[in-house]
């Protein structure tokens, strides 16, 4: 474990706590893409298949359980909570996310570290995570205005992957056989997807104005 990876995991956890705070405090999920949340739940469920077969550390197991439970909790809350689901922007959240699932799965069948069930689903989860934010970014683009908590949620989510890139660079130079090129390339693509959002987030923060995304 290194400081970059720990910082990445903590910003990832913060992003989920900010999301849960927004939904429970405001009893609203407006501005949040249910499709992105469903994709994240799928990412964690397919990535942590080794949850009960390989014990890495107590920290690793607890964080996996937290990520799976919180992503499922958000999806259930957005789908079932009587009050929350009324505020879901159904007609704005129209990204065809099934294509993302299909594309990630086909790519995972072609490009993986080992052609085994667990490795293919691990690669699938890595590719899908890189693309999972797209419905959310499209929804924000369409709605134009980004409320503070939603903006912070996406910001921390992007920061988590950026920290992981520093982690991979650090591990590349400090560990002999470290080679996570699938995660590195995919993580890089994911962070680039946020670049546009980061730019407008920084502008709004600098001008102390409400964040606006160009339509």
């Amino acid at each position: 474990m290194n400081i970059f990876r720990f910082a990445g995991d903590m910003t990832h956890l913060i992003s989920i706590l900010v999301l849960l705070l927004k939904i429970y405090a405001t009893k609203s999920c407006s501005g949040i893409s249910l499709k992105t949340q469903e994709l994240y739940a799928l990412v964690f469920l397919t990535r942590y298949l080794d949850l009960f077969t390989d014990f890495i550390s107590v920290y690793n197991t607890i964080m996996k359980l937290v990520f799976i439970a919180s992503s499922l909790a958000v999806v259930c809350c957005m789908r079932m909570h009587r009050v929350v689901r009324r505020s879901y922007d159904k007609d704005l959240d129209t990204f065809r996310h099934y294509f993302l699932i299909l594309a990630s799965f086909v790519l995972a069948l072609l490009v993986n570290e080992k052609f085994t069930f667990q490795e293919i689903f691990w690669a699938f989860s890595i590719y899908l995570e890189a693309l999972a934010i797209l419905p959310q970014l499209v929804l924000l683009q369409r709605s134009g205005n980004v409320d503070n908590l939603t903006g912070q949620y996406v910001f921390f989510l992007g920061a988590y992957r950026a920290f992981y890139i520093l982690n991979w660079i650090y591990r590349y130079f400090t560990e002999q056989h470290f080679s996570r090129w699938i995660a590195c390339v995919s993580g890089l693509v994911q962070t680039v997807l946020y670049a546009d959002f980061f730019y407008y987030y920084f502008i709004s923060w600098k001008n102390n104005a409400k964040m606006q995304l160009p339509a």
Partner: peptide, 10 residues
């Protein structure tokens, strides 16, 4: 499982 196979990252 060789160590490199263990996915120790989240």
């Amino acid at each position: 499982m060789e160590p490199s196979d263990l996915k120790d990252e989240l």
